[in-house]
């Protein structure tokens, strides 16, 4: 057997770059009293997760303004429901993505109800290959949840069709690392899609 590449990626951490911070949510419902505001750190949550949530929304909707509205709506709903969050059941990141998914679905449904007036460029990409809009959304959500490094290799290699050698030439990341990242990113995508399919079944 050939030698193992020396700079192979560590065991899967495709989403580790954005690991959730459940401690930022209180495990008990916050007080409604204005003198003892709840400890949900909205700014920290935004700083840590807004990029991924925006990536989810903008790639699902292909409209930056709509996507920003979705992110804002996501944090608004999270803020209003913060006393319902339990870190024992899901991470903050997972919870925010669930909210964002519902917001995006709401927006997509609103768009679908307005077929004559939606600008064509809004929908050009939203009618892509996946037959079921939820399947498409699941793929985009899975990609959005990956770390930037793992997502980048999937985009470069599997969406844009570049070879690992070509990506190495432009990024400086060795082929062995890229192939390792690709493997673990695909694994994370597989697990995500399996989980989503199970929920949608």
């Amino acid at each position: 057997m050939a030698e193992v590449p020396g700079d192979a990626e560590p065991e899967p951490s495709p989403g580790a770059a954005h690991a959730a911070s459940p401690s930022r949510f209180p495990s008990t419902p916050p007080s409604a009293s204005p003198s003892t505001p709840p400890s949900f750190d909205l700014a920290a949550a935004f700083d840590e997760h807004s990029g991924a949530l925006f990536g989810f929304a903008v790639n699902a909707l292909r409209d930056r303004t709509l996507a920003e509205d979705c992110v804002q709506e996501t944090f608004l709903r999270a803020w209003r429901a913060r006393d319902q969050f339990s870190a024992d059941r899901a991470s903050l990141r997972t919870w925010l993505f669930v909210i964002a998914r519902h917001v995006i679905i709401d927006v997509q449904r609103s768009i679908q109800r307005m077929p004559r007036l939606v600008p064509a460029d809004v929908l050009d990409d939203t009618a892509a290959a996946a037959d079921d809009p939820l399947d498409r959304l699941a793929v985009i959500e899975g990609l959005a949840k990956l770390s930037p490094e793992h997502r980048a290799v999937l985009v470069d290699v599997h969406l844009e069709g570049r070879s690992y050698a070509e990506v190495e030439a432009t990024s400086g990341v060795p082929v062995a690392t890229l192939r390792s990242r690709s493997f673990y990113a695909l694994r994370a995508m597989r697990d995500h899609l399996t989980e989503r399919k199970g929920r949608n079944a």
């Binding site: 909205l42 935004f46 292909r62 944090f75 892509a128 399947d135 793929v139 969406l159």
Partner: peptide, 23 residues
């Protein structure tokens, strides 16, 4: 499935004003 679903990925960041709106 991934490549059949998307042809590219918008990796841009949201506008800076979004943070203020959320906060």
């Amino acid at each position: 499935v991934t490549s059949a679903t998307l042809s590219d990925w918008d990796a841009t960041a949201p506008s800076k004003s979004l943070r203020g709106r959320v906060l």
